[in-house]
Write a protein that binds this DNA or RNA. Structure first.
Lengths: 249, 249
DNA sequence: TCTATTTGTCTATATCAATAGACAAATTTT
DNA sequence: AAAATTTGTCTATTGATATAGACAAATAGA
């Protein structure tokens, strides 16, 4: 029963080494057929540390969404099936995840009126420096953050969008109130990078995690830009599917 | 002047993050033309931490041999030229590094009498379980560890090898006292792997460093095995050259 | 139902990590 | 020679990390 290579005094906390070890060792015969981890006391003995140190590691992984514990029963690996976020002409922020989860919600974290940066202005087809409304939103599914979006609207065209959103809890509904019965996803760019500090904070990720970033533009039926947004998805919780063509039926 | 992405409370000490940052940023315009780092106070401000935290990072890198500091002057990048360890028929542990360094020494860390494991027995041409003498040695050049060797000798044939080594400070001289005027390197195997805990400890490496491991057998002029040894070299301080053929002259 | 197992919570203690400030010692610049 | 710069050392304080032990609360199994 070896101490599995934990190193002390090297500037990396034991609980972090153990958390990384458990995460990478999930496939490695550590979990049983029911997706259950060995009891904390056994893990503590196996790693050669105190039970509380193991608990700190498990707590980090639980916060990250990898594990969850049940008092009296044990600690289990979470449903690792990623949510599928479809991207196509009819993509809607609120309904993206459809019926894949029981409990989902969108919350407005912050909003502001500001001058349009060049990239935003170009996307929305306005002049740089013109006023825009910025909305910071987060999507949560089954208690775990699955998306983090920053959106811009023209302040001149949609001055009341924030109030409407707070009332209706939906961008689609808000736009409908403003007479825009339909809108389309004109373009979507996709990138991936390591999580920065804001990501680890707001999406409950651990350092080193990967986020998928989409850059999207919604337009009205006449092709006039309505909404420009950046959305960050945790790569281990979400995958994207691109609908390039609509199946005929 | 950004805080360069340091993260607090994630189980990785700030000094370790800074040390890694400095090490990987050495090429990245951090050092000037004289190989000098910015003053500690400036680094502290740049990373957004206390000067003492920067000092902890520098201390780790100095211990690792990457940097060295001079009071009143500054902190400099060490001569990064690797020592060359030639391997051939006449390879001697003590004189391997020749005149590449001014100050070099070999020290005996530990020794023991034990039963030969199967690999050792096979190499030395004796029966498994026969007694052998194991010597743990370390080579130091300019104050920095450059090799770590474990050697086995037949206890029956060389019972006094440890005493002789302590007296002569040389394996070659010890064997000469025993009437073995010459010996040859019969075979050398070479591998590379990540440093384990013993390596980081005894070779002053940081976690994640790479070590080159040689597996060598020395024989007397009649081809009878004398010494079997494993040697670990830090890959960032030492490189091996293999002499396959001896130049005629 | 009773018992054993397992996670959750609490107190206490020691060491490491990080900050803060002051001053000494060596070096470089003026 | 004097001043400025830079590393080295010291004390003190706060919070994070890790250990130790005890017991509560929930669950599973006999």
């Amino acid at each position: 029963m070896q101490r599995a290579g934990l190193q002390r005094g090297v500037g990396v906390a034991l609980w972090r080494q153990i958390a990384d070890g458990i995460r990478s060792g999930l496939t490695n015969g550590l979990v049983d057929d029911n997706g259950r981890l060995p009891p904390e006391s056994e893990l503590a003995e196996r790693f050669g540390v105190n039970r509380h140190t193991v608990r700190a590691a498990i707590s980090a992984l639980a916060h990250e969404g990898v594990l969850h514990s049940v008092q009296g029963s044990g600690t289990f690996v979470r449903r690792r099936k990623r949510l599928v976020y479809p991207i196509g002409a009819r993509t809607r922020f609120s309904s993206g995840f459809g019926r894949q989860t029981r409990d989902r919600q969108t919350e407005l974290l912050d909003h502001a009126r500001e001058a349009a940066a060049s990239e935003v202005a170009e996307a929305l087809g306005i002049k740089a420096g013109e006023e825009v409304l910025r909305l910071e939103m987060r999507g949560i599914a089954d208690g775990l953050p699955v998306s983090r979006a920053t959106s811009w609207f023209s302040a001149e065209r949609f001055p009341k969008i924030v109030d409407l959103y707070l009332e209706t809890k939906s961008i689609t509904a808000s736009l409908a109130r403003l007479g825009i019965e339909d809108y389309l996803r004109a373009s979507t760019g996709v990138e991936a990078r390591h999580a920065d500090e804001a990501d680890t904070d707001e999406l409950q990720l651990s350092p080193g995690a990967i986020v998928i970033v989409t850059r999207a533009l919604n337009v009205d039926p006449d092709g006039v830009p309505i909404q420009f947004s950046f959305t960050r998805f945790p790569a281990d919780r979400v995958e994207l599917t691109i609908e390039t063509a609509r199946p005929t039926r």
